[in-house]
Amino acid sequence: MRRHLLALLPILTLLSACTYADYDLVSTSSISPRFQDKDPQNFGERTPHHHAIHGIDVSKWNGDVDWPQVRKSGVSFVFIKATEGKDRIDSRFNDYWQGARAAGLAYAPYHFYYFCSTADEQADWFIANVPKSAVHLPPVLDVEWNNESKTCRFRPSALTVQAEMKRFMDRLEAYYGKRPIIYTSVDFHRDNLVGQFNDHHYWVRSVAKHPTEIYTDRRWAFWQYTSTGVIPGIKGDTDINVFAGSAKNWKNWVEAVSKPQQVARN
């Protein structure tokens, strides 16, 4: 019997190092934002600017990107849209991940999920279009309610959502050897993910309040705190994110997850 060993080292390293208590112990003195924001929010004392590691997420709508300039500005990582549903690929995906890699940035592809296609159809599509070399950090599953979609606004039950997510993520983990990260929004998390998938890293959207105020009891690894950021090397508004841990945590985690997961025989 063959099975994939869980990536326990990076998970335990991150979860033990990035607790809410650790964050609250950080000095709350005034810290200047690393990047400009066209619509800055008041997060109180627990601002994203206390975090050492910042990153961005991009899709074709970000246009041409000067990746060396992006890295020089202080960006450490980038999540790049790869696929959507069972039949769409972002037209800039290949250019973006190769540019990010050449610039020395940590990078990962993400898939935007549609509940009008099966988990296997979408996993097949992702695997067919995302080479293993494009998966430096673990791949990301982006799950949100598609309120504005012209083709799929279907909202299955929470149990169905969880079953489909598990199937999709299990397929990706088996193929790429890395446990997927889950990206989600406040309403989708509330409806489907409270208390679920606690052995996965979460990337949460929270653009008006600190995540601990709206994702109750959810330990997060990445926080998307604005969609109106200004990043040198990118024209127009850009999503900006922070990593929950310290610079040392980040270095150790990237070293661990960027290696292929080991396979053991029983």
Rank of each mutant, 00 (worst) to 15 (best):
P180A: 14
Y107G: 04
E121R: 12
K178H: 08
V140M: 01
W61K: 14
F79R: 02
W125T: 11
C152S: 04
A100T: 05
R155I: 05
W125Y: 15
H111T: 14
D142F: 11
K150W: 05
V161S: 06
E144C: 01
D64N: 13
K86E: 14
V161D: 05
H136M: 13
M169T: 12
G74C: 06
S59D: 10
W125P: 11
E173Q: 15
P131R: 02
F77W: 04
E164D: 15
S157Q: 11
Y107S: 03
T151G: 05
D90F: 07
D120I: 08
L159S: 15
A100S: 09
Q98R: 15
G63L: 11
W97R: 03
F115C: 01
S185G: 06
D64T: 14
S185F: 05
V75P: 07
R88A: 06
E84P: 04
S59I: 03
E144S: 00
K72Y: 08
F77I: 00
L141F: 11
V135G: 01
E144W: 02
P109L: 06
S59C: 13
P156A: 02
P156G: 09
S133T: 15
F79W: 10
A128P: 07
S76W: 09
A163K: 15
R88S: 14
Y183R: 10
F79Q: 01
Q69W: 09
P156S: 09
V140W: 07
V140C: 06
Q162S: 06
Q98S: 14
S117E: 06
R167E: 11
R88D: 03
F112I: 07
V135W: 14
W67A: 00
D170G: 12
E84D: 11
W67T: 00
A82C: 09
S73P: 04
W61N: 12
E173M: 04
P109S: 13
D95M: 08
N147M: 13
V130M: 04
R155M: 12
S73E: 08
K60L: 08
E84M: 02
S76I: 00
D66Q: 12
S59Q: 12
T83I: 08
C152A: 06
T151W: 15
Y114G: 08
D64S: 05
R88E: 10
Q69R: 15
V75I: 14
L141N: 05
K72F: 06
V58K: 14
R171S: 03
I80Q: 00
